[in-house]
Design a protein around this nucleic acid. Sequence first.
DNA 1: CGTTATGCTTGACTTAGTCAAACAACCCGT
DNA 2: ACGGGTTGTTTGACTAAGTCAAGCATAACG
Lengths: 303, 303
Amino acid sequence: MSDRIAAIRRFNRFYTRWIGILQEGLLRSRFSLAETRVLYELAHRSDAAATELGRDLGLDAGYLSRILAQFEEDGLIARVPSAKDRRRSVLSLTNEGAAAFAPLDEGAREEIAGLIGGLAAPAQDELVGAMGRIEALLGADPTRPYVIRPPHAGDIGWVVARHGALYATEYGFDARFEALVAAVAGAFLAEHDPAREACWIAERDGVNLGSVFLVRASDELAKLRLLLVEPAARGEGIGRRLVEECLAFARAAGYRRVTLWTNDVLTAARRIYQQAGFQLIRSEPHQKFGPSIVGEAWELVLR
Amino acid sequence: MSDRIAAIRRFNRFYTRWIGILQEGLLRSRFSLAETRVLYELAHRSDAAATELGRDLGLDAGYLSRILAQFEEDGLIARVPSAKDRRRSVLSLTNEGAAAFAPLDEGAREEIAGLIGGLAAPAQDELVGAMGRIEALLGADPTRPYVIRPPHAGDIGWVVARHGALYATEYGFDARFEALVAAVAGAFLAEHDPAREACWIAERDGVNLGSVFLVRASDELAKLRLLLVEPAARGEGIGRRLVEECLAFARAAGYRRVTLWTNDVLTAARRIYQQAGFQLIRSEPHQKFGPSIVGEAWELVLR
DNA sequence: CGTTATGCTTGACTTAGTCAAACAACCCGT
DNA sequence: ACGGGTTGTTTGACTAAGTCAAGCATAACG
């Protein structure tokens, strides 16, 4: 925890300086930082009133009032009393205001382009991706939706990688486990009947969150495999959704039963299987992946 | 490009606000933001002079001078004229200064702990990871070193994932390619003789940058496979280093020749092979992975 | 040894930002 | 409709934050 906080503070210091460099460009303009931010907001939203602006930008009401008064005097903004609430004024940029904002906006754009210009396109994408991740985590709209979709290029490898890494750290499994996953997932990718076998990936904002496979054991028996949910995305019911997806597909594909193989240590997964109606039919201790655990076979009769 | 810039600006606005929230805590202290930053720097570095502080924090020299004078008056810092340059004063926190800084520091720590407290531990790790990535990319000390090491848990899956994703976007390869990689890498993981077969991963700051495998074809012939360098890390000679690693291992393991199979479209890789002394011995058009390309066999006689 | 650059200080400022009071309009319950 | 509390906005009176240029002592360089 303390490591994380130290890292975050280091990043804050780093990024404060970086933003500082960006804002130096503003010094050559006729507007202060606060004024620029107000202009930006006005350029990008319609029918805003002073109060919302102040709240969103964290500006003092009195300070903002004066900035707006100056803008009005300079003909940059227009104020129309709100019809619904005559205390409020609806603010909007005039053409003149838009004209004053445009070069600022362009300058900011160029400033950033210059600063990231040294990075190759893939590195820039990585940068933007990391920023998006931070926003998603800190902004934490925890209800933003994930999607369940078929695998894209790279996803099968991702399944192998995450199984290998997570089971190693969480349960101490050794390389044999990752090898097994590679064999199973690789075989699926090399050849499968799309009418009777499928894979689903749970994804949000371009980040994979989970996986599951349904493969054929016999004409009547399907096998659910490689159910995984990223630790950062657990507790949202993604695992349950993935299993449901499997069972619906299995029914539609004409299977009679679904089986799966798991281990006693995977308590979260076991709970999902149980709630989906699976029953434990056989268990057997083994050390196939290093630590001594109990392998379990579960089965569900489809209705 | 313009999308990326927009995303970066959005992040800047977002993060400006987030930092703003953090700094509200300071309002209740006797120090201004600039003063706190100065204290922080003094607490974390030794023998600093005013000029470096001002440069690193982006503060006006006059402003800083006054801050320091005040600190000295309050007994928070000590100034010792530098032996080497009598214009400079070496600054350091007194015990009193350290005591004044401690609660500030603790407050900042708690503030952050509170703000990220809503996130589960894995999500916090993700956050810190993303911040580190941004720092690495923007701070861009391009000379910071990478390491070449054996694979850890998850790395084999990573190799599969990145081959699948990159060859799909760069050359339009289909799923059969990822399946082939999964088979090759999975077989290596499932069983290999560590004396005669090996895999190396190039890594920097916990991020994988590249891979290569050397496997046995016969007692005398080794096969180099799955050479990959992340687009974001190309041009640093990582590919060359990986190939060198392979060849050194092949010599030590007693092989006489090394062979490899590649495709004409992989021009960067071909150049590396050529420079390492490989010679093209056979080529043959195929469409194994979708697009029509020319497969090539290269070979090197070890000396 | 003179010229120029650097580290730091000081005085004289401007700008940014805060605080509290005030007022009109709204909201709500009666 | 009325009174009490709240909200949106403005204004005056401030304080703090930050800038600029001049100046002095020392260092660096040819």
